[in-house]
Design a protein around this nucleic acid. Structure first.
Lengths: 187, 187
DNA sequence: GTCTATACCGCGATAGAC
DNA sequence: GTCTATCGCGGTATAGAC
């Protein structure tokens, strides 16, 4: 793999684990087995490399979500498939994690891909919920935008609870609690 | 206010904003208007001060939650009261934020108060849900532990979505989506 | 209790050789 | 493209005076 690629992937990994404030250029270089000069040749600095890495992670999240949400099955099945798909729960969400970082949230350039990712995800989920309403799976009384936000929040909050507990259990509980509620509301 | 107290409160504030990896002893001292030697006289180091500050924040979260959850009203009213109470949404949760920090999650001493806080909160919420089941407000089919985890996750995830968006809106949507689902499930 | 001095290391970047 | 040298600053303490 080329140096640039190794730098981006190492940055993604470190941003995921430690966030922007917790990740130093030196640590990225070490992980990528690249020298100081090499990194600064390809990128203007920490912020630019981080921007590219965040955009890459954002793209991965979208692709993964689309795989479940755009697949086959009824609206309910696709949402449950998305909720239930295999996840590295204790690592958390590689994009959501960045929302905790003051220097990401405080910098329009770094925050943009994070904001767009979740705006897209909520919109995508809302479409599926709306579809479920049209098909009669979900009751008319459910608001698509609200329900979509709730689904996204349960996942992001599930990660938080799991990392706090040091166990995936609260994540699983939260997701099952949501699927139960969706099922109950559809009766 | 005494120096020790100023140090603890400044540490709480900085941990909330920037997390453990993003907070330096020097920054705490500056915020507390305390000298270097003063801080190290009262605390063994950054980790010990952080521990005290985290425990303080954990206590505040519990007290605030108990105010709503232990108040008057039916189970549903108390849960809605807890969900709807005024929050500094864009600041996020002062305890949940720490679950993103690798050095908090990786250190048993620092993680303990975070883990205990959410274990307590989920338990407390589960009690209220169970009460609602007994009173007939909630259907027997709702699992108390799952529903409690879902409620806690919606709040924590709502903060994540709001900070990502730079707006409290997704938080409000997620919370309303949850109250809608709870209402729908109770029909 | 609080202050200043000192230490050593890593951060984030630039410069220039190869 | 990659390397090494260098820079100024801040992180996280410790030591000892007051």
């Amino acid at each position: 793999m080329e140096t640039v690629e190794r730098l981006i992937r190492s940055a993604q990994e470190l941003l995921w684990e430690r966030g922007y404030v917790g990740t130093s250029p030196k640590a990225i270089q070490r992980a990528a087995r690249a020298g100081q000069g090499s990194m600064y040749h390809h990128f203007a600095g920490k912020a630019e490399l981080a921007k590219v890495a965040i955009e890459r992670s954002a793209g991965e999240l979208r692709a993964a979500a689309d795989e479940q949400l755009g697949g086959a099955g009824t609206a309910g099945e696709r949402i449950n498939g998305y909720l239930g798909r295999e996840r590295a729960v204790l690592k958390g969400c590689q994009v959501g994690r960045l929302a905790a970082d003051p220097e990401v949230v405080g910098d329009p350039v770094l925050r943009a891909p994070v904001a767009e990712t979740f705006a897209w995800l909520r919109q995508r989920l809302a479409e599926v919920v709306a579809e479920g309403k049209r098909s009669g799976e979900f009751p008319e009384s459910l608001d698509a935008a609200r329900t979509a936000a709730t689904i996204a929040a349960v996942l992001q909050g599930g990660y938080v609870l799991a990392r706090a507990a040091g166990s995936p259990e609260p994540f699983e509980l939260a997701v099952h609690g949501l699927t139960d509620l969706l099922k109950e509301a559809s009766k």
